[in-house]
Computed example of a mutant assay.
Amino acid sequence: MTYLPCVGCGWCCMHDQCTDSLRRHGYLPRCPELFWNDEAGRYLCRTMLEGDAGDSIRRNQHTGKGCCAPLNSWRKDVRNRDT
């Protein structure tokens, strides 16, 4: 199966917390580690930016392997949804 690349639309983290987020924060409506980065023009995850811990989380979340929700409409409308 071929996956489309992640575009950083935020859909996954806003709708379905990953196991790493659940361990850190418990069940929440949205992962608090998710943030919009104006420079990159996409959402990023703070935990994935944490050096060695980030390496482990990126492996756990299969970062770079592609989008697991390629039919979601946010992929075509990547924007800051926090405002």
Rank of each mutant, 00 (worst) to 15 (best):
C45W: 09
H25F: 09
L22V: 11
C12P: 01
R46Y: 10
C68K: 10
L44Q: 13
G26L: 04
N37G: 02
G54K: 08
K65W: 09
Q17T: 01
Q61S: 02
S73K: 12
G66W: 05
D55G: 11
G51Y: 11
A53I: 10
E39M: 03
E33D: 15
R79G: 09
T47R: 12
Q17I: 08
D38P: 05
Q17H: 00
K76Q: 15
C45G: 02
H15A: 04
D82I: 05
G10W: 04
R23P: 11
G26M: 02
V78R: 06
C9T: 01
Q17Y: 07
D82S: 12
P32H: 09
Y43W: 06
L71K: 08
T63P: 01
G41M: 05
W11A: 13
C68A: 10
V78A: 04
C31K: 07
P32E: 08
L71A: 09
G54H: 07
D20N: 14
T83N: 10
G66N: 09
Y3E: 15
D16L: 01
R23V: 13
C18T: 07
G41K: 00
D82W: 05
N60T: 07
C18H: 05
W11M: 05
M1D: 14
L44N: 06
L71V: 00
D77G: 03
N37C: 09
D52W: 00
